[in-house]
């Protein structure tokens, strides 16, 4: 069961402006039950790649294949809801589910720790709380693919560990694939099947272990980028000069 192909991207090229491709010749495959982590410096095209996978953006070259009837659960980086819209977290979650779903007495609500938040207005939630509510909505949709854009942003170390354990539980129970963007290879280590290090093109990919030891990865994240020292990304332009398509802020 763990080998069913869900998404396949082949030789994707995409640029918001044609002269400056954000992604060049990127290919990847996603199978059921797999956790795929994208890492890379800011502006490397990680979110763009997620959006192409979801169908939010169309690539200029390359092909996107998704299994028929594939259901996505998506946790965007941010959710801004205007104060004029009266909406509780409960209602927000229900809106992602089939019409008429009104009971959320589900263990996923417990596991994502949103039970106490259900009757609060969305606008009153903190960033971390909102993220858990969005995750809860995405899980309850029973997705084939769960996509998370920087779920660890603004979450403390304790919260990060909690989230990774939760992701493994989700994968095991829903038998879905999970794709996430992470800044922290250290925490990714144990659970991720596949890591793709992205900087406009795929620098390297494979198991977390092999990526961490890969010279391209070390070039991108500094020489000290061993397994346990990667909490912040330092992106050194000089080390990346030989990479095609690299742009630096």
């Amino acid at each position: 069961m763990h080998t069913e192909l869900l998404v396949q991207l082949k030789r994707i090229t995409f640029g918001y402006q044609p002269a400056q491709p954000v992604l060049q010749d990127v290919s990847l495959t996603l199978r059921r039950g797999e956790i795929l982590t994208l890492i890379g410096p800011n502006g490397a095209g990680k979110s763009t790649l997620l959006k192409i996978m979801l169908g939010l953006l169309q690539p200029q070259a390359g092909t996107v294949w998704r299994r028929d009837g594939l259901r996505f659960g998506y946790v965007p980086q941010k959710l801004h809801v205007d104060a004029s819209l009266p909406m509780t977290a409960r209602r927000f979650i229900e809106l992602g589910l089939p019409p008429g779903t009104h009971t959320l007495s589900n263990r996923w609500v417990e596991l994502t720790r949103v039970s106490a938040l259900l009757d609060k207005p969305l606008q009153g939630l903190s960033g971390g709380e909102l993220q858990r509510v969005m995750l809860c909505r995405a899980i309850l949709r029973q997705p084939d693919v769960l996509v998370l854009d920087e779920p660890l942003q603004g979450v403390d170390v304790q919260g990060q560990k909690f989230l990774y354990q939760l992701l493994v539980t989700i994968r095991d129970e829903l038998q879905c694939a999970i794709v996430l963007i992470s800044h922290d290879l250290h925490l990714v280590m144990a659970q991720t099947d596949q890591v793709i290090c992205l900087n406009h093109h795929i620098c390297c990919s494979g198991t977390p272990q092999s990526v961490a030891e890969h010279p391209e990865y070390r070039r991108l994240f500094g020489e000290d980028a061993g397994l346990f020292a990667i909490y912040t990304h330092h992106h050194d332009p000089h080390r990346c000069a030989e990479h095609e398509g690299c742009t630096h802020e």
Partner: peptide, 18 residues
Amino acid sequence: WRDLLNITLNRELAFAEG
């Protein structure tokens, strides 16, 4: 109605959810 609410909440999320 539900589609409109979902688009209002987050356009990309709505799109990803079909």
